[in-house]
Design a protein around this nucleic acid. Sequence first.
DNA 1: TGACAGGTATATAAAAAATATATAGTCTTC
DNA 2: GAAGACTATATATTTTTTATATACCTGTCA
Lengths: 183, 183
Amino acid sequence: MSIKYAILGLLQYSDMHGYRIKAHIEKNFGHMWSINFGQIYPSLKQLQEEGLVNMLEIAPSENGGPRKKLYSITPKGVKELSKWLTEPTGKSILIRDPFLLKFAFFGFGEDANALTIIDEQIEFFESQLKRRQTNRKKWERQGVYVRLLAELGVTQNQMYLEWLHHAKKEVEKNMKRARREKA
Amino acid sequence: MSIKYAILGLLQYSDMHGYRIKAHIEKNFGHMWSINFGQIYPSLKQLQEEGLVNMLEIAPSENGGPRKKLYSITPKGVKELSKWLTEPTGKSILIRDPFLLKFAFFGFGEDANALTIIDEQIEFFESQLKRRQTNRKKWERQGVYVRLLAELGVTQNQMYLEWLHHAKKEVEKNMKRARREKA
DNA sequence: TGACAGGTATATAAAAAATATATAGTCTTC
DNA sequence: GAAGACTATATATTTTTTATATACCTGTCA
């Protein structure tokens, strides 16, 4: 249940409502955390019951606008978060990368098909890299930790892209060799 | 439900029972997939019902030994797997890294505490890197795809370790500056 | 003008997956 | 011979993900 702490931590940066929390995590923490609405709204309700956050219902303005629920962290919440910060991390990372899983079994299919899917992946990560590089600048003057995380995001993305290009070349080499052997 | 395909793919490499499947994924695919028994045994049962795998119950040998259920992929399973291989990957990666999440909020705690937890992480990834480097040699003569995945595992791990060391230095620098400012 | 796509915002049911725990036997080593 | 680690399967509980519903706003394009 560390989603609880993800939310608590974000609220210590600034007050937010559910929708913003998701957008913020996706934009800035996408390389280390995934989240979805199905967790956010129930978690916020629970955090409120535990007295770790406060909720302020914001009435729609005169010209309409959606109803919002602005959440802020309570002193009790701040205490809970800093307790968690000192606990050893334990447990390992949870990863599920559908592309790499498929990659592991490309040997059972056609190389040409593999190349198509690799290209898809390259395209996706190229656009993501641009976004992260822009984002990184925004975090540059913030605290050390946030800056370092943004750096990691960019470095990771670059490394992964390099690997994808390398993989593409290797697969092409492999296809040529296979054709030669058949001839 | 891509765990189904993870299992199917592994079974195309070789026949296995549940326990081996988990060990294999952890050892070789740890950088791209997480799995646990709570999924494996029900999934195997389901795959069998769908006729995608066969199950062979192995009686314990004369001198005892645990009961095993050896699973193998069926021709229908092979067809299903290769159909999946051609489908576009869609969806993005799912990641949940409790260390990096905590890292994002270290700014609200003590730098000394952050250093302790960073050191824990360095230790863990150093031992993992050794394991992956050994593992990589084993995959070197296998197919292109498997070899490339093992390479990615090592590269990723190295990059992450470098970042951890870099982060440690930056945090130390930050502590010194804070002390100077206080004085 | 009005229709449609896209964005903001909250919410929940249903499906899938993760965590924790139980059982049971083997093998090693002290 | 006892303790601890490893092999092996299984499942209940909790947590998370996916899918979908509602509602209102803004911009645009025909």
